[in-house]
Design a binder for these strands. Structure first.
Length: 438
DNA sequence: TCTGGGGTCCTAGGACCC
DNA sequence: TCTGGGGTCCTAGGACCC
């Protein structure tokens, strides 16, 4: 049996942990630049505000003063997420953290009642110690477990927020109620294709011939169908698989046209990629930079381009990666256009342990490694971005807008400063005192 | 006025090889 | 009218996920 634990309205729930006055109110958490709704409370969902709704369109659904809009604080969410995962990890077998608010795992018992009891106790424990509501579904395959958790979350009669799909009759009746776009693996495009063929519900989807699924999708769609029929087609990956690429990109607070302003942003993104590589003890050899205009401004000529550079050897040096990113940027920057977004991606990533020192620049590599570990040490100790590459020393012209911080919650400044020293009612049962100190 | 960010996988098609 | 066969590798684009 596989279980899927899924946090309810995760980002909003995190904000509520630190500011209970938000309970019962329609709340949305906004993406970077205060752009779109990326998490909604049940009250906000009830108003009809869709996922991804641009902030300025919220007024189309209700009086905007009635909705609390908050700028996102991913550092806070990540911290609460790790606490939740730690609690799950104490009971689960082969926990696979699938995203910031979801984890798959295997269940320990043969008996489904015992599994159910265990999961109910986990839901309660997480709520008590972290304050975030979680729903858990379990079934023979991950795709069915996903549906089970979906139902556990939505169905008001599911009081303990745990649902097992363990007998065929039950599965059949649930599949009759699940729309195809609620199936894990069916997105917008496939949904449209299925609807145009008259397929509306999962119960119809599971009866489609394989050849048809191959035609409209690919092998993964065939697997999805098998999974719904109870055949396990995916393996759990308990060990976090190393990243194949790391990306850092932002939409700027407003359009930019000066080359220097944009290259400052590029250097900042490159630094962030390099820092993540070093945290993951890995190095990359390819650097891709992309820039693009504002896709919503019809009054400005639109330009978008990207460039990939393969460096001499694998590296995680902020200096090397930023240097190549700027080279790539110089080759695609066109004077006279406006830019709204840019990003840096590093790829072809390998663990440092597998790499040999490149004989042509070994001396420089050793120097950079020393410098980078000194920088990382300082930033760990005194807060992120205390030491940065010179061009990114000041807040750039490109900085995104964030005007909606949850100001009532004082503890949040610790999180926004990347220094979670203190979390008020989070019981230290999940962490040792030393770890909290750290 | 205001419209996010970060990933993975699959497939088709082109380049190139013998 | 006729225009080989069989590989591999790379890339771009499309689809999905959160």
């Amino acid at each position: 049996m596989y279980a899927l634990a899924d946090c309810n309205n995760f980002f909003v729930s995190c904000e509520r942990v630190f500011n209970p006055t938000l309970n019962g109110k329609p709340v949305v958490v906004l993406s970077n630049n205060d752009g779109c709704a990326i998490s909604r409370s049940n009250e906000a969902k009830a108003l009809g505000i869709p996922m991804g709704c641009p902030a300025f369109q919220i007024k189309n659904y209700t009086d905007p003063n009635k909705v609390v809009m908050l700028s996102a604080r991913h550092v806070l969410y990540q911290d609460l997420s790790s606490r939740i995962m730690r609690i799950l990890g104490e009971a689960a077998i082969d926990l696979e953290v699938y995203s910031v608010d979801e984890a798959f795992f295997k269940l320990p018992y043969d008996d489904n009642d015992c599994n159910h009891k265990l999961l109910v106790s986990l839901v309660k424990k997480i709520y008590k110690y972290v304050g975030v509501p979680v729903s858990i579904g379990f079934a023979a395959t991950r795709t069915l477990a996903k549906i089970a958790s979906h139902v556990a979350k939505k169905d008001p009669s599911c009081l303990d927020r745990v649902l097992g799909l363990t007998n065929q009759e039950h599965i059949d009746s649930i599949l009759q109620q699940i729309r195809v776009d609620d199936i894990w693996g069916v997105g917008r495009r496939l949904n449209a294709k299925l609807l145009s063929s008259g397929i509306h519900y999962a119960s119809e989807f599971v009866r489609l011939p394989k050849s048809f699924l191959q035609k409209i999708g690919n092998i993964n769609l065939v697997r999805t169908q098998q999974e719904l029929l109870g055949q396990d087609c995916m393996t759990i990956n308990p060990v976090a698989i190393a990243h194949k690429s790391i990306m850092n990109s932002r939409t700027f607070g407003h359009v930019l046209s000066k080359k220097r302003d944009i290259s400052d942003a590029i250097i900042s993104f490159a630094q962030a990629c390099a820092e993540q590589l070093r945290r993951e003890k890995s190095a990359a050899i390819s650097v891709t930079v992309y820039v693009r205009g504002d896709r919503f401004r019809e009054d400005l000529p639109f330009y978008s381009n990207s460039c990939t550079i393969r460096m001499q050897s694998h590296t995680s040096s902020s200096i090397e990666i930023a240097r190549h990113a700027v080279m790539a940027f110089n080759s695609i920057f066109r004077q006279g256009f406006s830019y709204r977004k840019a990003g840096v991606m590093v790829s072809d990533i390998k663990p440092i342990a597998e790499l040999q020192l490149n004989i042509f620049n070994a001396e420089q590599e050793v120097k950079h490694n020393k410098l980078m570990s000194a920088i990382d040490g300082i930033n760990r100790r005194y807060g992120s971005k205390q030491v940065v590459l010179a061009p990114t020393l000041t807040k750039g012209e490109w900085a995104p807008l964030q005007n909606h911080f949850n100001s009532q919650s004082k503890t949040l400044r610790f999180y926004s400063g990347m220094n979670p020293l203190y979390a008020p009612h989070i019981n230290p049962v999940c962490t040792t005192e030393e770890e909290d100190q750290e």
